[in-house]
Design a protein around this nucleic acid. Structure first.
Lengths: 187, 187, 187, 187
DNA sequence: GATGAATGAGGATTCATTCAT
DNA sequence: AATGAATGAATCCTCATTCAT
């Protein structure tokens, strides 16, 4: 008993991650998903709607994975930062295609307002965290936006380099990047 | 006396930067360049050849801008790092479309072996620098690849955040990121 | 207890009348009829079979409405002509969609032999009437086919003009057209 | 030296006349015209634009054929009516496909405002004529719209019957219909 | 050399029809 | 009997590439 919507979503994310939005043909997605081309249109209004729905779902899942039960009670901000990094890494290592998909589509012109709003909420969560740590003089007194940009940049770069084979995404490496990152932003 | 190849290259880079490879039509490039569609094929064998040549040229120009007359004689490694960061930033601020183009195309499946080789040389230059600084115990004793990945990640993330309006790409911000970055990697 | 075949027939006639044969999708008909798409194929072999059956039924109903109990005993040919005109008009005013449907499909390439035969019988009835009136020297000594063509043309044009809002289909107008028509063909 | 736009127009009119708008595939038109499918889109923005442009051109040509140098100087209204009828018939006999095309498309939902405006001007010309003749008490004192509707109905019905093989479109028949028509509307 | 009209393969999407439930 | 999800052929349209001028 297969869930066709699920099959299509998975196939589409893989295909988009590999070849981009315009580089991916709807019939290719259908073939990968093991469904007829027309079937995709029973679940998604159009190719654009498909990519937007998947983007929102992926981004929301990432936010969920990171924020669910966060912060762990009794943890220090430094520990919380480490926890965030670990959660992000775990999600991405477990869903490499989904992450590539999100990064490739990031800020693409075919993302609609709603998709961008989900993206925005993701950053706001980070900003709130750093607004707090900077208030506590644990991190540099820089705009929270600057801090989250730096941290996210380092994280994304690490993952991409891993996917490109430039570095090995071992737990060790991931921790190394995390501690570099903290040293970059700590007060 | 206009140089048509130059016109085409500029137009193509802009178009690719805005809409990606598959999202850009060759006739659109021709129109932007003010030439006939057929003319593009006098200078480039195909759309793929075009994008690959442009990618190599752009990456090479970036390498040139960064490595020309580097390191400044009598400068310390710390000063050299700052100089590298400044040169990268200057190039990117002066050629925003070209940078977007490079980042968008980065590791795309239509880049050929030769283009990837240019990319590789770019990273090798960074690795050599960090091999030296780490040898001097100025930067962490991590694989040079790890350091260059971190630094490049921070740089790219900063520029992209600037393009997306998430932060302001003032000299001040650029310097801030630079010093954060150094703190992240210094021994 | 709804008669599904009836529902489908009504829905199909309306849809075909509005958008034509090729412009109407079978699932649209199903939705309008309040049945599943597959159900249509329990009652009709195919879309073509559907349109042909409906066409024959509609044309037959029109013939019925006109010829049932015709001619009224003791009526003069002139009165009979008026009666025919009135019956046609009544049928059409009461079944506007059906008339539009018939006219739109008239002589379309997907009408099969049997449907055209029903069409043919309709004209033959008219020809017989005019063969008689011409024999009586009440109408012009023209081929009956010519007379029926003229009369039917005027009738159809009147109705269509009414549907298009070019004239008002009042009883008055209908009578006016009838008397013009008679003057056109009377001896 | 063939004019491709002309080829496409002719082919499209024939195809639309035979199978209707939705029943005609763009590649079919291309094949008939002896051009590539893509070529059609160099001359017409879309299938809808194509049908609308052709409709306007056809209707305008018909108006031209009828109104050019009309009325003949020194002719009586009765003669003028005959002349109109003759001109219409000549145009239609010489351009049978174009006439079928116009009639099939008449008041179709894909005709745009501009196309309907051309249609409107056609009827207005007729109304003006009958406003004059009725003013002269030569034709019945009925609304000009009613008269033009009647006459146009008879004309169209005659032509269609001819195309369907129901009557022969000889000069004789055409004249017969004309005189019937006049008798129908004369005062 | 330069052009841009022409092409047709390939793209997104629709829809008549089937069939498992 | 009735359904409507699933299909894939066929639709309209785009675009990389060619070639006559």
């Amino acid at each position: 008993m297969s869930d066709k919507r699920q099959d299509i979503a998975r196939a589409a994310i893989e295909a988009f991650a590999e070849r981009g939005f315009h580089g991916t043909a709807v019939p290719d997605i259908a073939r990968r998903a093991g469904v007829g081309a027309g079937t995709i249109y029973r679940y998604f209004k159009s190719k654009e709607a498909l990519v937007n729905e998947l983007y929102r779902e992926a981004k929301s899942a990432l936010v969920m994975a990171v924020t669910q039960g966060f912060p762990p009670p009794g943890s220090s901000p430094r520990q919380q930062f480490a926890e965030l990094w670990r959660r992000l890494a775990r999600y991405v290592v477990e869903n490499p295609k989904t992450f590539k998909f999100m990064e490739l589509l990031h800020h693409a012109p075919y993302l609609d307002r709603e998709s961008l709003a989900v993206e925005q909420r993701f950053f706001e969560f980070g900003e709130q965290f750093f607004a707090y740590t900077s208030g506590q003089q644990l991190t540099k007194s820089l705009p929270p936006a600057t801090l989250i940009v730096f941290v996210w940049a380092a994280f994304v770069g690490m993952i991409k380099a891993g996917h490109e084979g430039r570095i090995d995404l071992t737990e060790q490496t991931i921790e190394t990047f995390e501690s570099c990152c903290w040293e970059a932003i700590r007060a």
